[in-house]
């Protein structure tokens, strides 16, 4: 079973295209428009990597990240941030995110990071099982 992605962003156009591009590469991907929806999906289905936007109305990215890490510690999170600040990314990573990608996203970079995150998740899982 390969990489399963959950993409969370409030920008419908963005998320739609992201979904298309993952699907095109035959990577199963699910879209969530906000934090609560993402959490609900995570509770119902299994995902390996969550691509999470920091700035969203209602529940913001950092809160969602903390919630994900609490409920599904093994799920890896890649932060999407519009802030070109290293600090925001660092803050996310200190809360357990795998890495961060600056908007506008270079898809190749995102894909690479998602694959690496998936590999780490597999590693962690095997360590847990053994």
């Amino acid at each position: 079973m390969g990489l399963r992605v959950l993409a969370v962003d409030d920008e419908a156009d963005f998320i739609e295209t992201l979904v298309k591009r993952f699907t095109y590469r035959r990577i199963p991907v699910t879209a969530a428009a906000n934090g609560p929806e993402a959490l609900a999906r995570l509770d119902r289905e299994d995902f390996d990597v969550v691509i999470l936007d920091m700035r969203m109305p209602g529940m913001d990215g950092l809160t969602v990240l903390q919630e994900i890490k609490k409920r599904h510690p093994l799920v890896e999170v890649i932060i999407l941030t519009g802030h070109a600040s290293v600090e925001a990314g660092m803050q996310g990573m200190s809360l357990g995110a795998y890495d961060y990608v600056l908007k506008p996203v270079d898809f190749g970079e995102l894909l690479e990071k998602a694959n690496k995150a998936y590999e780490r998740k597999k590693l962690n899982e095997s360590r847990d099982h053994s």
Binding site: R55, K103, P104, D106
Partner: peptide, 20 residues
């Protein structure tokens, strides 16, 4: 910068999708 970044991200993705 922040407000411009979001539309840029969409354009980027759309262009990427076209490339795909």
């Amino acid at each position: 910068a922040h407000e411009v970044n979001n539309p840029l991200a969409i354009i980027m993705e759309k262009a990427g999708w076209m490339r795909d």
